[in-house]
């Protein structure tokens, strides 16, 4: 990441003129509050908007979110992400309200959107650092997910999200295999994971709006309470159990392996909250299937991050080191498949 300010004089002027029109205001002033911590994929810039006139008249703490040029496969562009966020916000879920969506890449170099800034911390290692398990937080995150999963295919404004085929599971298997490239033919752990997902793939089932990166590190907490669910760039239609499995996967417990729901509490707490709002029960066997898929997914992301560096398109120490996380992801995958061997058995 370069140290140069993202909002140079030209971009600031262009953005202020555009916002003035969008907000129906007399004048909008944007103050750059600096980069916020975020993933290796997106840029999150803290901004203060001073809006003079129009329905949003006043001062707003906000975040400008935009993407770097080479994103990971299947990530939404920022205008699409904002459309998903808008629908999630409409369900009453605790997500930052999107205020302005800039779909035209000419303005800032890539699509972007501006949302309200939530308070609190997201960093996983800080969120899990509590003496007692955070059972109410896990339950609330379950309730939130149940609400988000009420959005179904056909929802207006989400026509750009592709429907998986022939099933959510097999779409994932085929995507992962494609994204892995030659590694799927040379790394036997990846080959085993893909084979297991293929042999055990469930029949096509109901599809819901999945966040697909719903985990500790991607929600914000202040004084133990949820303030925002963030990082919606991988959202898509899938099996509802996928999000629950991803939340509970070992790689997202930040060292608190004893608290299987995201390092904060027990699975039972998350599941109980989910069942309160989702209108469906948690299928633990399906969650185990999707946990396998989760490790393969994380493995493909790590591979792709490493390749962004190795290919020379985006030399980055952080991306390079992410690529070298593959063995630990694979070890989690093997441990999981060992643990569920009895539950799943094998095909005769």
């Amino acid at each position: 990441m370069s140290g140069a300010p993202f909002l140079d004089a030209d971009r600031k002027a262009a953005l202020e003129a555009w916002l003035t029109a969008q907000a129906g205001a007399r004048r909008v002033t944007v103050t750059d509050d600096g980069r916020l911590s975020g993933g290796a994929i997106s840029l999150n810039l803290g901004v203060t908007l001073e809006i003079d006139g129009g329905p949003l008249d006043g001062t707003h703490a906000a975040v400008l979110r935009t993407g770097s040029a080479s994103g990971v496969s299947a990530s939404l562009d920022k205008a699409e992400e904002a459309a998903v966020l808008r629908l999630a916000f409409a369900t009453g879920a605790t997500v930052p309200e999107p205020l302005f969506i800039g779909a035209d890449p000419a303005l800032l170099g890539a699509p972007f959107y501006i949302m309200r800034r939530a308070r609190g911390v997201a960093a996983g290692f800080r969120v899990v650092k509590t003496e007692a398990p955070q059972r109410e937080l896990a339950r609330e995150l379950g309730r939130q997910l149940g609400r988000i999963h009420q959005v179904r295919p056909g929802a207006p404004g989400l026509e750009f999200l592709p429907l998986p085929a022939p099933s959510a599971a097999m779409q994932c298997v085929n995507d992962y295999r494609g994204w892995m490239g030659r590694f799927a033919d040379t790394d036997p752990v990846l080959a085993y994971g893909l084979r297991w997902l293929t042999v055990n793939a469930p029949e096509p089932g109901e599809l819901v709006l999945c966040h697909r990166d719903y985990r500790t590190g991607n929600y914000m907490v202040e004084n133990g309470e949820l303030t925002a669910i963030i990082d919606w760039e991988f959202a898509g239609w899938s099996d509802p159990m996928e999000d629950l499995a991803w939340f509970c996967a070992a790689c997202w417990r930040f060292g608190r392996y004893d608290r299987e729901a995201g390092g904060i509490a027990d699975r039972a707490d998350l599941y109980a909250g989910y069942e309160e709002t989702a209108g469906r029960t948690v299928d633990e066997r399906a969650v185990a299937y999707w946990e396998t898929a989760g490790y393969l997914r994380w493995a493909t992301v790590a591979l792709q991050q490493g390749m962004r560096h190795s290919s020379g398109t985006e030399p980055s120490l952080e991306l390079a080191l992410t690529g070298r996380m593959l063995p630990e992801i694979e070890l989690d995958l093997l441990r999981h498949l060992d643990a569920v061997a009895g539950m799943w058995g094998a095909k005769p």
Partner: peptide, 28 residues
């Protein structure tokens, strides 16, 4: 080994458990 896995040679319980043991060693 990748090709053999893809052909289903380790789908049954026992060969699959043997496969996992070797994959654990490789990964460690």
């Amino acid at each position: 080994l990748c090709a053999a896995i893809g052909e289903g040679r380790f789908d049954d319980d026992e060969p699959q458990a043997a496969l996992r043991r070797v994959l654990f060693d490789l990964t460690r």
